[in-house]
Amino acid sequence: MIPHVLGLHALIALTVALSAWFLSRYTIPRPPVGRFVRADIAVMVVALVAMPFAYLHVPVAIVVSVFGVVVFTFTQLTLAPVLGGRVAGFAALVLCGGDVAAYFAGWSGVVLVLNDVAVVLLVVGAVNLWVQTAISPAQVAALAAALTLYDTLATGLTSLTLEFVARLDGLPFAPVLATRGAPEPSLVGLGDCLMLTLWPLVAYRSYGRVAGWTAAGVDAALLAVVVAAFLGGGGAVPLLTTLGPLIVVQWLYWRSRPVPVPSRPEVERALEFVPEPAHAVAAQGRWVALADGGVVGEGPTPGAARRAARQSGAETVPVVTFLQPVE
């Protein structure tokens, strides 16, 4: 049991690392116009919550077909920047075809491996798509909060998730990352994988290196606790019930940190400028160009002062100000 659980967690760590590597190297094609907005979160939450209910009441062939289309699309999307569009399409076709063929051949081990490959690629692609379409930390926190509620109900308080997973056990395109199937499954749901991967990347992008590594550390600590609970006989653990609040807490912490107000040092420095008395008299009633704490040009108009600054060799665009005549 322990090797399967540790292997599963190694797969999760690999997924997070692959997503981060992908983000640093590749750009997912994005639509011409549009970025991630609140409405997208709402649509996702509704879809994620509604899907398991729907899938429990439709023929399993339809469920598998829907997941097959999703896997094919995201595999192609993920691999396209790496392999090119056509090769990626072919690779996605091979993966999906192989998964189905292995199922009909009764090779459950191969189905498990190919499903894991599909889920890892799906997570890498989906997370990168969201991050690269500028999903914000607040949106991830909102998604986490919504999924916390859902996961608590579906996994912790009811048997919805277990029934759903049991129904898809051993089938191609099952939305779980697994190292062993029934009767003693060792698996984590697609939603858990997405949130475990998404937050560290978004935190890194939005708040910096420390926030990103902290988020990854929190993921690792949480998984360690889950392993301990699971091995201690705790049964199915609703991971998002804990992960969601942890993401929200991290978001609240990082957003509460003061954000420096943008400044314009060249204007600040120009305001501090006090002309030498002799110069103040000589240049009174004229425009002066200021840069690096001193006068770099002067003229009867602001443009002329700027031009004089350029002619005197000033590299930067100076600030121009009018020297009032001395009373």
Binding site: V267, T301, P302, V319
Partner: peptide, 13 residues
């Protein structure tokens, strides 16, 4: 007009 085009404005963003 040319003077305006050469005048630094220095506003945020």
């Amino acid at each position: 007009a040319l003077d305006r085009l050469a005048t630094p404005l220095h506003v945020p963003g």
